[in-house]
Design a protein around this nucleic acid. Structure first.
Lengths: 192, 192
DNA sequence: AAATATAGAGAACGTTCGTTCTCAAGACAA
DNA sequence: TTGTCTTGAGAACGAACGTTCTCTATATTT
C-alpha cells in the first residue's frame, strides 16, 4: 500500500478524533483502529504521537486557510471580502463536528506542555491576522482595523464553541460591519 | 487542622498548577506536594480529582467575577463601566501567570469528555454575557451591543493567550469604543 | 499509663497509555 | 521449492496516573 495514502488516512482520522474528544483522550490504539492501520504501520509513518499531533495541526491549517480563501474569493468588493470571513465562520459553526477552533483548543490542551504546539498555534493565528491585514489594506482601511476584526473572529469561535450555538457568527458580523464602515470613513489617514 | 483551610489551600494550589500546565498534566501527587497535604487528606476533602477540577472552576469564576466587578465599580459613567471590562483584561493579560481564559481552556481540554466541565464553562460565559448586558442596558444601548462586546472580550483573551502579548486588550478596547458609540448614537430604539 | 482514634508518609494496586517486540502468514526472488 | 523480507495482529513492557491501603507515630481520652 502507498505510504502517503496511509499517512493521509491516519492524519485525517486523527483530526476527526482529536477534534471530537481532545488529543489526550484519544489513544494510539483507538486511532489505529479507526484508521484501519496496524500499530506498527503507524510508527513507520510517524515517530511518535506528538508527530501525529503536529501533522494534524498542519492539516487543519491548510484545510481552514483554503476553505476561508475559497469563500473570500467569491465576494466582489473589498468590504464584502472582509465580511466573508464571518460568513465562513457562520457556515463552520453550523457543522455538527464544530467544537471550536482547533488551534485555540490545541493551545489550551497542550500549549503549556509542548512548545511546538504552542508555536504552531501562534503561527496559525499570525497567518490569519496577516491574511485579514491584506484584505483590510486592499479595502483601504487604516491598519488598526485588521486586529479588531481578527479579535472579533476569535471571540466568535470561542463563544460559539462554548455556547454550542452558531449565533455568535452573525453578531460578530454585524460588529464587523460597524468597525469596517467606521474605519473606512475615517479614511486611510490612519495607515498612511 | 481546620478542614476549610486545607480545602482552600488545595483549591488555590490546584488553580495555579492547572492554569500553568493544564488539568491532565498535573497529577494528584504533584498537587498534594505543592499544597503540602497528604494524599489521604486530599481524598478526605474531595472524592476525586474531577471534584477538585470543578472546585477550581468555581474558584476561578468567583475570583474573576469579583475582580471584574471591583474595577467596573470604579468607573463613573455607564460608558466607562463598559470600557472598564477591557481595562480589566489589559491588567490581567500583563500578569506573568496569564495563560488564557481558564474556562475556554477547561472547555478545550475537558469539555468533550466531561459534561460537567462543559456546563460550567457555558454557565460562566453566560454569566459574563449577562453582566455585560446589564451594563449595556444601564448605558441605554440597544440589546445587540452586549453580545458584540462579549465576543470582543473573548477574542481578546484567546488572542492574548496564544500571541503571548497583552496588546489585544487595547485593540479590543478601541473596537469597543467604536461599537459603543455607534450603538448609543443609534439609540435605544433598537432595544425598545 | 493504657487504650483508642487519627493523621501523615508513601507503598501498593489496577488501569491506561505510548511504544516496542514477537510471531505467524504472505509476497517475492532465485 | 526454499529462503528471505515485509506485514499485520496483538502481546508485552515500562511508565504514569488516580485511588486505596498499610504502617507507624502522635494525639486524645479515661
Amino acid at each position: 500500500m502507498i505510504s502517503s495514502e496511509v499517512r493521509d488516512r491516519i492524519v485525517e482520522t486523527a483530526d476527526e478524533l482529536y477534534n471530537a474528544r481532545g488529543f489526550q483522550a484519544v489513544g494510539m490504539d483507538e486511532l489505529r483502529a479507526a484508521a484501519r492501520v496496524s500499530l506498527k504501520r503507524c510508527y513507520q509513518e510517524f515517530p511518535s504521537k506528538s508527530a501525529i499531533v503536529l501533522a494534524v495541526l498542519e492539516h487543519r491549517h491548510r484545510a481552514w486557510t483554503e476553505g476561508l480563501d475559497a469563500l473570500v474569493r467569491t465576494a466582489d468588493t473589498p468590504r464584502g471580502r472582509l465580511l466573508a470571513i464571518f460568513d465562513y465562520l457562520a457556515r463552520w459553526f453550523c457543522e455538527d463536528s464544530f467544537r471550536g477552533c482547533g488551534f485555540i483548543n490545541s493551545f489550551a490542551e497542550l500549549g503549556a506542555v509542548s512548545p511546538e504546539v504552542a508555536d504552531y498555534a501562534r503561527k496559525h493565528k499570525e497567518s490569519f491576522q496577516h491574511y485579514v491585514g491584506d484584505l483590510a489594506e486592499a479595502a483601504g482601511a487604516p491598519s488598526y482595523l485588521a486586529p479588531q476584526l481578527s479579535i472579533l473572529a476569535e471571540g466568535a469561535q470561542a463563544t460559539a464553541a462554548i455556547a454550542g450555538s452558531p449565533e455568535a457568527a452573525g453578531q460578530a458580523r454585524r460588529a464587523a460591519e460597524v468597525l469596517i464602515d467606521t474605519a473606512l470613513r475615517e479614511g486611510v489617514s490612519g495607515a498612511a
